[in-house]
Design a protein around this nucleic acid. Structure first.
Lengths: 203, 203
DNA sequence: AGTCTAATCGGAGAGTTCTCCGTTTACCAG
DNA sequence: CTGGTAAACGGAGAACTCTCCGATTAGACT
């Protein structure tokens, strides 16, 4: 089929994917709404994609084509709040946004991330156990780049890329849930432990 | 049923559970062998407990009663090597075992842990995605206590318990797989990054 | 050996996840 | 409006995980 016309008849613009078809967009929206409502009512743990599909009035296939799997759907839900969060640390007021010294921004960022995870713990738990959709997709990459940049500013001689991974690693829903539920730690204790670690790193 | 005789007729010794019944022990052994062989042949990813049961010649119920779920079975496989590992850092030669300064033991321990995870990556990946059996059970607790003890020795004024979690967090199969496969990092790079972090912590 | 009891067994079955592919639909060009 | 095409739909079905509970059996005691 070399040279054959592929896709729409109008010239395909490289790197700019076609807009979603109207029915597809409608269905995606509906699925997200239904999933959000079902989770709000009965938790993310036992969320059945089968049921989401039924309630949303689409076939199961549609849900899977759109989101890949449970984790993918959950990631889409998380993404909604993620955008606000990203604009807060890219362009919001200090110490989270630009304007404060890098060291303070690092701490503010990590604290905000912890709050975010605590607030949507169930969602993040599902994401982390995800099947094909792994947790290092999407938001993680952005967090990593942001944090690595700040670390490099605060402390140029270290391996900022690795340290960013290492500081993000303890900020995961699974560990935080364990620390709070089994170890009886409070969110404040977790934050202050992480602050100490960040302080040691940036020197 | 208060005061009624429960279990075997001989006095039950508190805290010392009855030995496993012979058939139960035989089945457990057989299941573990079969699972190990199947994983060696075709990877841990697509391991089906249904098939394990069939090949081992037991019912599915038996597998689940014994190991709880996929992650539980995998944990049992991991446990076999775990014992050697534990005796190495509890009683083996330095720097992993006792005799070296705490700071060096910490680094040796973390490196050994990384090697261990790299060697059994697939198994650990399954464990971390586990259903009910979570990864902070069993071995994790031992590692945590050991590391926290060393940290407290090296550096008494810090929150050793939290820092132990934080140093163990980047040593997980999921992250390491990502770093190696997607980021192209080598095991050596990961180790040296972690060494730097441990150094910063223990001052 | 015979009895008894609790632990163990095992497989049917309910509930999910995810795939495959024939059918339908949106939307562009003419 | 009509026709054509790629994308989207949807549900049957394959495969898996895990539960439940009546049947079976190991092992202690007599």
């Amino acid at each position: 089929m070399l040279g054959g016309v592929r896709g729409r008849r109008s010239l395909p613009v490289i790197g700019q994917p076609q807009p979603e078809r109207a029915d597809a967009a409608r269905n995606r929206q509906k699925i997200i709404e239904v999933a959000a409502k079902m989770i709000a009512e009965s938790g993310a743990e036992g969320l059945s994609l089968d049921e989401v599909a039924r309630v949303a009035g689409v076939g199961v296939g549609t849900v899977y084509r759109r989101f890949g799997d449970r984790a993918g759907l959950v990631l889409a839900l998380i993404d909604e709040r993620e955008r606000q969060f990203q604009s807060a640390f890219f362009a919001g007021p200090p110490p989270l946004g630009p304007g404060a010294p890098a060291g303070e921004r690092i701490v503010a960022f990590l604290h905000a991330l912890i709050d975010r995870i605590v607030a949507q713990q169930e969602l993040f738990l599902v994401l982390e156990k995800g099947g094909k959709t792994n947790r290092f997709t999407g938001p993680y990459r952005v967090h990593h780049i942001h944090l690595a940049t700040l670390i490099a500013q605060a402390c140029p001689e270290v391996d900022a890329r690795y340290l960013a991974d290492a500081l993000l690693a303890p900020v995961n829903a699974c560990l935080i849930a364990f620390q709070r539920e089994e170890r009886g730690m409070t969110v404040e204790e977790i934050k202050s432990g992480l602050t100490a670690l960040a302080g040691a790193v940036t020197g």
